[in-house]
Amino acid sequence: MRPHTRWVAVASGWGVLLFAAGVTRAVAQESHIGSVTGHAPAGRPLYERYCAGCHGDDGDARGENAQWIDPRPRDFTMAVFKCRSTPTGTLPTDEDLFNAMTRGFVTTNMPPWVALTPQGRADMVAYIKTFSPK
C-alpha cells in the first residue's frame, strides 16, 4: 500500500468511528414520550435546578441532600431502575422514566414533578440518560 493510501484508510476508519459515536450520542441525547421529543442540552439546566440536590450534578446520587435521605436517591450512572415496563436487567423506556418522575414515589423523598411542563420533563429524561454509558 502506498503511504498516502494508508493514511487515507486510517483517516476514513477514524471518520466512520467518530460518525458512529456522534450518531449514538445524538440519539442518546434525545427522549421520545408520545409526540414530545426531549433534548438533553435543554434538560441540563432544569436538572441542575430541580434534581441535582439529591441525584448529584453527575447523576451519581451524591447531591448534598443524599446523605440525609432514606431510601437513597437513584444513582443514574448505574442505570438500574425500579419502575420499568421492560424485563429485569434491561433499561426502562423513556416513558417509564417520564412517568416515574411525574408521579414521584410516595414512600420516599422523590417528589412528583407533574407541575413542570411535559417538554421540561422530557428534556430531563433525555439528560439523565446521558449519565449512563448503557
Binding site: R49, Y50, A52, G53, C54, N65, W68, I69, N109, P111, W113, V114, A115, L116, T117
Partner: peptide, 22 residues
C-alpha cells in the same frame, strides 16, 4: 423538611415557580 433546594419551588426565591405553586 423535604431536602429540596430553593430552586425547586422558586424561579428565584421568593417568587414561586409552577412546582412551588402546586
Amino acid at each position: 423538611k423535604y431536602g429540596l433546594r430553593c430552586s425547586a419551588c422558586h424561579t428565584v426565591w421568593p417568587e414561586l415557580n409552577a412546582f412551588g405553586q402546586r
